[in-house]
Design a protein around this nucleic acid. Structure first.
Length: 329
DNA sequence: AATGCCTACAACCGCCTTCCA
DNA sequence: ATGGAAGGCGGTTGTAGGCAT
């Protein structure tokens, strides 16, 4: 089909070629990378005469010409690994590719999307039963999309960094929990008395490895987090990028939390931040392993900051009505 | 043989992050 | 601190080839 303007769709306005690569182009690119190494892709065109943009060169090299790439269909083992990884992290193709040597993010993405189509057509769920069991994700595919979504300040929807499957750890009382819901703590127990054994951290080992979370630290931080919260710590509890650095991945918001019955604590991956990037953990004593979500079901609008909630604040009252019976002040 | 549909996958696009001057 | 360039990532599209009718 020709375009209305009559322009050649195989090249752009800079006379750079688009579309499938020829073997001649591959040879030129491969020879260049062998000689000069990968990176600085935009100079490839200048130095080789290849009529391809840097981005296209990088993609061609990483997805097809790299010598360490595997060829052929995914083995059964690889297929299973992809499914497990997807249950753990959602559509994080590049991260998944790090766990599958010789496979590219693009390959994994294509494999997954094809597989997903097939299963949908056959009326099957996203994950096989054994995977669902392992990762405690049985709610994810029946009612909810793979990713949670929130609406940030600009009103634009975006993917949360927390896969739905992780969230669902908090909403299934009979399943192992990432951290226990507050309601599991005995009514007459002061927070500082909560024995650490209560806090059964049944985090899948693979998840701990993937997220590089030291288990002891997670537990310690959970204790500190709850202490801070109960001592009137200065918490922000809204999700979205504006409440922390816009460079940080977004957190789930109340629209996610409202789908659950229990108050929740959210665990998320820690990201390296540069010294000039002002990541402000939600809890003053948090290093970012734990994040709080304590939305009661009847909160229709996100509270902005716990520290701003005085005693007559209905939202604060509601929050304490949930927590107070278990942690009397 | 012609046609249509489906599948797999390569490649592009837009957005975001990182780097560096 | 800032802005532009480069790189990275995930979603989407285009297309070749296989298969069924």
């Amino acid at each position: 089909m020709s375009s209305f303007s009559g322009e050649d769709k195989s090249s752009d306005k800079n006379n750079l070629k688009k579309g499938p690569w020829t073997t001649a182009e591959d040879d030129i690119l491969a020879a260049y990378v062998r000689r000069h190494g990968s990176g600085n892709w935009n100079v490839v065109q200048k130095n080789t005469g290849l009529a391809r943009c840097g981005k296209s060169c990088r993609l061609r090299w990483t997805n097809h010409l790299r010598p360490d790439l595997k060829t052929g269909a995914f083995s059964n083992e690889e297929q299973r690994k992809v499914i497990e990884l997807h249950a753990l992290m959602g559509n994080k193709w590049a991260k998944m590719a790090q766990e599958l040597p010789g496979r590219t993010d693009n390959e994994i993405k294509n494999f997954w999307n094809t597989r997903l189509k097939k299963r949908k057509r056959n009326g099957l769920g996203i994950y096989p039963d054994d995977i669902k069991h392992v990762f405690n994700a049985h709610n994810s595919e029946t009612t909810l999309p793979t990713y949670t979504h929130y609406v940030n300040d600009s009103g634009v929807g975006s993917s949360s960094c927390v896969p739905r499957e992780v969230f669902n750890n908090f909403s299934t009382p009979n399943q192992p929990l990432l951290v226990p819901p507050i309601s599991e703590v005995p009514v007459d127990m002061q927070l500082f008395e909560v024995p650490k054994e209560m806090m059964q951290l049944e985090v899948p080992e693979e998840m701990m490895q993937l997220f590089h979370i030291p288990k002891e630290f997670l537990l310690q931080e959970y204790v500190e987090f709850l202490e801070d919260f109960m001592n009137g710590g200065n918490y922000e509890c809204s999700g979205g990028p504006s409440s922390i650095s816009s460079k940080m991945p977004p957190l789930p918001s109340s629209c996610d939390a409202l789908q659950f019955d229990e108050p929740m604590v959210v665990v998320r991956q820690v990201h390296e931040v540069g010294t000039n990037q002002h990541y402000r953990p939600r809890s003053p004593r948090s290093n970012g392993y734990l994040e709080s979500i304590f939305y009661p079901p009847n909160v229709s609008q996100e509270p902005k900051n716990y520290s701003n909630m005085q005693g007559d604040d209905p939202i604060k009252d509601t929050l304490y009505s949930i927590i107070h019976p278990f942690f009397p002040r």
